[in-house]
Design a protein around this nucleic acid. Structure first.
Lengths: 156, 156
DNA sequence: GCATAATAGTTGCAATCGTAACTATCGATT
DNA sequence: AATCGATAGTTACGATTGCAACTATTATGC
């Protein structure tokens, strides 16, 4: 890419961001309207619901790629709503194990159904060929991110 | 995707967002460190620089997919820095044409070089096969977004 | 040609976010 | 066992954000 022919719309960070923003916002509109959930709250719920077993806040953050302050606030909100409970680890009292309540698990189930039908809608719009290519491409990006993270870790 | 096997990490909005966030943040770190530019400022600069001709704030917003208040604030900051000037449209006095100054164009050139070398770094990390797949996949997503936007426009 | 709607751009305000600092606890070193 | 560093989680604070309301101007409908 020559300097004088730079096109923002061909720049990978820009393209990825635009696609991600659009796709995420459309789904966010659904769970915000139905449950008044914020994005960090939905992600925390999804992290806890997908494994089914208790997790610590740090694990939630790793699993869902969120900053720990976001997780902390989302956990407080979900606890307030009685969708999850905390329990102290007996061996290490810094840790707290987060677990969905019945109500939380129920909400997770409903949101999961919403997510699945959204993904199906995207599948249909994008088409099998595009979807396949996207999966391969995203996988390559994820590998690249992994490399960079390990490189950064070594340099620390 | 059955409801009981939902995995956040396989959900398209999540995967796209994670990839986009990571890739964008690494580049943002570069122009923030060197120029103290915010992301909306860099995008506005890139929009104006890439075409070379004057644009209105609305055009900048469309071109770079930013909310108009973001554009408004970015334009004010870039004007303060004397990287762009505004001129009123004579036919329609609601419009203002934005144009880079010499200094703005110079900065754009340097940032463009940074962007190009970042893109090259990503190319190398992701590899030609992954990059090709990603391009095809993103293109399919962009078409899908276009469809949805047109559908939404019709329903208005 | 007057009223109403639409558009360009700005700004007040409340909510959200990340950084950095903080508390509390644990592990390692000596 | 006392100290120092690392880790889990929370919070105060400044910065950023988007919504909604606002001004100014132009287009439209009657």
């Amino acid at each position: 890419m020559a300097a004088d022919s730079f096109e923002l719309s061909a720049f990978l960070p820009y393209r990825l961001n635009r696609a991600a923003e659009f796709v995420a916002l459309r789904f966010a509109a659904q769970y915000k309207a139905r449950y008044q959930l914020t994005r960090p709250e939905w992600r925390t719920l999804a992290a806890l619901g997908s494994t089914g077993r208790p997790m610590t806040a740090t694990e939630v953050g790793t699993h869902s790629a969120m900053h720990k302050t976001k997780v902390s606030r989302a956990v407080a909100a979900l606890e307030e709503r009685r969708w999850l409970t905390r329990s102290e680890d007996e061996g290490d009292r810094r840790l707290e194990h987060l677990q969905l309540t019945k109500a939380g698990a129920g909400a997770y189930g409903e949101l999961t159904a919403l997510a699945a039908s959204y993904q199906a809608e995207l599948d249909a719009l994008i088409g099998p060929t595009g979807m396949q290519a996207l999966a391969v491409g995203l996988h390559a990006v994820e590998r690249a991110i992994g490399k960079l993270e390990r490189r950064a870790a070594r340099e620390t």
